[in-house]
Design a protein around this nucleic acid. Sequence first.
DNA 1: AGCTACTCCTGGTAGC
DNA 2: TGCTACCAGGAGTAGC
Length: 286
Amino acid sequence: MPELPEVETVARLIRGPLEGRSIEGVRVEWERSLGGASRRAFSRSMRGARVRSVGRRGKYVVLALERAGAEAGFVLVHLRMSGRLHVDAAEEPEREYTRVACALSGGSELRFVDVRKFGRFRFVRDAQDVLGELGPEPLSSGFDGAWLHAALRARRRLLKPLLLDQAFLAGLGNIYVDEALFRARLHPLEASDRVSAGKAAALADAIRGTLTEAIEREGSSFDAFYRTPEGNPGGYQHQFQVYGREGRPCRRCGRDVERIVVGQRGTHLCPRCQPRPRRRARGTGR
DNA sequence: AGCTACTCCTGGTAGC
DNA sequence: TGCTACCAGGAGTAGC
């Protein structure tokens, strides 16, 4: 599933072919991919605009648009489970499951392909309306052990659901949360406000390290869905320590990796490296 | 405040 | 072989 490293890879690879191109026409095959806008309104907003820049915030690919050199809104693409972006020559055969396509100057086409239809290809006037709700970027300079420790203590939540909360920290999904918690030797059911400063620092390092290494390998292709815009699978799935490895030996200690369910999410951990938290004593705190 | 359950979707797969 | 039932999963929402 595309998380921060996959989205970063996509943004980097479509930047070259997209920046500076004008949008000459749009085709909408599945209207709900637009996230509420009508085909007509979407078309009107897009047609004639030029792609000024391509970036990423959290799990969003962000296209900044301009008209006559002035800001003209943004496209926010969320790939969710099965979304992909490709820039193809217009004469290339149609891709199966294409939901939205934008014809570009120079004879290419930006194609949003999404088997499961959960992804979104939205036009917004003000990107901050959406991106402003997100927590900090884990690879930004402001994210470190001290920040994380304070933020964890300000909440009373289970670690895993909190790290998946995009308003808390932007960009992590199911895979990288499991990998980062393993690396920091923290159990996913640990209470956020019981994580020590030292453990929080280890977790911050684990998050940054996992994401950085995954970006270097162009993300993870655990299932058939994620491919880079060039059609290649990522390579980080070969580095997984726990995700998808239930019943197989922990690479650190040899104990079988376990799979539990936390907040309706499949969750992978080594029961020896990540010991179960002690139950909070009744009446503690507050 | 934070938790659970449900919804959106479809290809793949387990079970019969 | 061919059918059905169920599953994964990010995020939004409702209800407790």
